[in-house]
């Protein structure tokens, strides 16, 4: 008789949630536990920008209703932090000093918002927009028709920017290295896409750096930004969108190979046979490119969750077909990207 597996998934984003669903489909008898630092069940972050235009609460952003987890017998341990992983004992140690054993572990902890060193000293004056709570804080700090300064300008940020502009807010993007991340666009293309953004109503200051961020003067917007071209911006909210940094700190000392993310083979298995990784946290070996690389975007990440679940339950499938990663300008004067597509 086969022993009952306990699949533990660190992270409750798209990859983790997709994996949980497929694990349950393929193994009805197993225990499935998701561990997340969030207090909430999985949120569909692609619809978070709607927080500005509606009176919705977090329930409206849930990927699945609470009953779904009960029906699927998926336990979601929220408000829970993994401090380290002990692959030999096959267990996690949680911050509140409890251990959690697994038979198979999926790391789907995603990426945290990356803040470049040049901006790190101003981190307390910037808000984040990753979780529901962060989004709500931004929405609370932003007056109707207010002004947002967006530093970096990655595709996650630009998605929010176009939504905000549509809702009547003013958006200024100050960006250079991380503009259009994770798309690789050459200098010529960049000019073209910046022009499209301008046309969409987004004020873009490309190729310019930030000198300082300060609290705004009395009766002025809350933040005052000085740029290295001597220009200044007064904004209600400053957000940083400089791409993602894989959340792997808890894997230090686990003996699993890590570069920036967790290194996995095309079957998404790490260098430990019981540990897999999926989503923004993993770097997948690409035989064609002869290197480990990241794949972003909803469809990619979702697919990774599915493949990981397949292989954790005895399958042997490689991830191969990735969605087109090209940034495009549409005929209607907008830009579009596969990273903006979901559902």
């Amino acid at each position: 008789m086969a022993k009952t597996e306990h699949y533990v998934i660190i992270g409750n984003g798209v990859a983790g949630s997709e994996a949980a669903l497929h694990l349950r489909q393929r193994d009805q008898d197993s225990r499935i536990t998701m561990v997340t630092a969030s207090k909430l069940l999985s949120i569909n972050r692609y619809v978070l920008p709607k927080i500005f235009s509606s009176s919705a609460d977090w329930r409206d952003f849930l990927l699945h209703p609470p009953e779904f987890y009960d029906q699927q017998r998926i336990s979601v341990r929220r408000n829970t932090w993994v401090t380290h992983v002990e692959p030999e004992q096959k267990r996690l140690i949680l911050r509140h000093r409890e251990s959690l054993s697994y038979t198979k572990l999926l790391i789907a902890s995603g990426g945290g918002r990356y803040i470049p060193e040049s901006l790190s000293e101003f981190r307390d004056l910037m808000l984040k927009f990753g979780s529901y709570e962060e989004a709500r804080s931004v929405s609370n700090a932003l007056p109707k028709g207010g002004h947002i300064a967006m530093l970096g300008g990655d595709m996650i940020g630009l998605d929010l920017a176009r939504s905000l502009v549509h809702d009547g807010y003013k958006v200024t993007v100050v960006g250079d290295d991380y503009l259009f991340w994770p798309h690789h666009v050459d200098q010529e293309e960049k000019q073209k896409f910046v022009a499209v953004l301008q046309g969409m109503g987004i004020d873009v200051r490309s190729g310019i750096g930030v000198t300082s961020i300060e609290e705004g003067a009395r009766n002025k917007p809350a933040r005052h930004i000085a740029l290295d071209n001597k220009e200044t911006i007064d904004a209600d909210v400053v957000l940083s969108f400089c791409g993602l940094m894989p959340s792997v700190a808890f894997m230090a000392g686990a003996g699993v190979d890590i570069e920036r993310g967790v290194l996995v083979n095309p079957q998404l298995q790490s260098t430990d046979e019981n540990i897999w990784a999926a989503g923004d946290v993993c770097q997948i070996w690409s035989p064609e490119e002869n290197q480990y690389r990241f794949f972003y975007g909803w469809e990619n990440v979702k697919k990774m969750g599915e493949i990981a679940a397949l292989n954790m339950t005895g399958g042997h499938e490689s991830i191969s077909t990735f969605q087109d990663e090209k940034l495009i300008a549409t005929k209607t004067g907008q830009i579009d990207s596969p990273f903006w597509q979901y559902g």
Partner: peptide, 23 residues
Amino acid sequence: PMSEMAEGTHISSHLASAQLPYG
């Protein structure tokens, strides 16, 4: 907590999906 907790003894693992945890 003061000391290490055995697996399953912390209350956070006992919440229903629709209940909200405040640690």
